[in-house]
Structures are given as structure tokens and as C-alpha cells.
């Protein structure tokens, strides 16, 4: 079944396309909201700033909400994770999708910002999407802000960068990572493979 990669004009989608293809998925880059109907899964990638991202993503909001209600597996990456929240310190006037209650805040000034590089996961609770991933496995992060859900049980993994940073969240059919699985070597591919499997089920 097709995995739609939402192209809302925020940069390079080759990496995620290639990675999904590599693990046996059938990715398709889509740039129109109506193309989301009936797909097996959806990837919301993300590069850039929160406000800019929401400006361009908002025309997909209705289609994404429908997919969410239908139970279509949705995987959001990096800024894609952040826009699931209600708001962000990065763009105070912008509104997020609000699927996860809480806000996105800036990393503490005591650490290097952006956090750029490989950091280890601390797994908080089991999640299907983290099958094959162990505590301490490293993933590639590039970000300056991080999500703080009101309901901490949404957090499935954190990483340490000055503070405990939300690294992955899950809720119903939604899974999201702050790190880039498509740039995280074999472990990242494993997570994408879990997503491809979830779609086949």
C-alpha cells in the first residue's frame, strides 16, 4: 500500500523517499490534499520553522484530520513532530495541529543549539514502532526546539541534551520522532520498517 509523503514545499524529500523505498515500502510524494484519501500511511516530514511549516501545511489539515480519524498510520518527523502540538515558542502567533496537547519550547541556552548530531535514546515505554530498538541506540537529531506534551504518557522516548528532550511520541495511530530516522543508519531504517509493517497489517 502507498505511503504518502506530504510535500508541502519545505525542502528535500529524497532522503525519506529513498529510505522508505529501501525498507520495502511504496512511497509516493504527494502535493495535493485530496491525494491523501485511501493511502495506507502518511509521512509528515519537516524542515524549517514552525510557523512557516504550518503556513504551508494548513491546506492539508482537513485531509490529515480525516486520515487520523480513519486510523491511517501517520509518521511525523522533526518539525513534523512539533506541528502536532498546539503552539511553539519559535512562532508564537502560529497554531499547530493540536493533536498532542502541549507546546514546543526552545532548548536550554546552556547547550549547543541546534542540537546537531547523534544522541542516544532513553525508552520510556514500549511502542510497536520501536521494535528492535534498544535503550542507548543512537539517532540523528537536528533541532532547536522540542515538544512538551501535557500528558507525559505520550512520550515513548527521550534524549539528553541539557534537559530531557522528547525524542519520540505516540498516540493511537500517530507516531512521531524528533530525530531523523532516514538519516540514522540501520536503526533508523528499522523504525521505518516497523512503520511499513504496521501499514501492511
Amino acid at each position: 500500500m502507498t505511503i504518502a509523503i506530504v510535500d508541502y514545499g519545505m525542502g528535500n524529500l529524497f532522503s525519506i523517499y529513498n529510505a522508505l523505498d529501501y525498507v520495502g515500502g511504496s512511497p509516493k510524494i504527494i502535493s495535493e490534499p485530496d491525494e491523501l484519501a485511501g493511502v495506507g500511511g502518511i509521512v509528515v516530514p519537516g524542515v524549517g520553522a514552525f510557523g512557516q511549516c504550518m503556513d504551508r501545511l494548513c491546506r492539508f489539515e482537513g485531509a490529515l484530520n480525516s486520515a487520523r480519524e480513519c486510523g491511517t498510520p501517520i509518521f511525523a518527523i522533526c518539525i513534523g513532530l512539533q506541528v502536532l502540538f498546539e503552539e511553539s515558542e519559535e512562532s508564537p502567533t502560529a497554531r499547530g495541529l493540536g493533536w498532542i496537547k502541549g507546546r514546543v519550547v526552545k532548548l536550554p541556552l546552556s547547550v549547543m543549539i541546534p542540537q546537531m548530531g547523534w544522541n542516544s535514546l532513553s525508552i520510556k515505554r514500549p511502542a510497536e514502532m520501536l521494535q528492535g530498538i534498544e535503550d542507548g541506540d543512537m539517532f540523528y537529531f537536528v533541532h532547536s526546539y522540542y515538544g512538551q506534551p501535557e500528558d507525559k504518557s505520550r512520550i515513548v522516548a527521550t534524549t539528553k541534551h541539557g534537559v530531557d528532550v522528547t525524542a519520540a511520541i505516540a498516540r493511537d495511530n500517530i507516531f512521531a520522532t524528533q530525530f531523523h530516522p532516514e538519516k540514522s543508519g540501520a536503526k533508523g531504517l528499522r523504525i521505518l520498517e516497523n512503520f511499513v509493517r504496521a501499514i501492511r497489517c
Binding site: 532522503s15 529501501y22 540523528y140 538519516k183 543508519g185 531504517l189
Partner: peptide, 11 residues
């Protein structure tokens, strides 16, 4: 780069 990025998944 195109060729590399098909099977290399690091930055």
C-alpha cells in the same frame, strides 16, 4: 549524490 543517497542513510 543521487546515487549515494539511495542506499546511504546518514547525513
Amino acid at each position: 549524490i543521487k546515487k549515494t543517497s539511495r542506499s546511504v542513510f546518514v547525513p
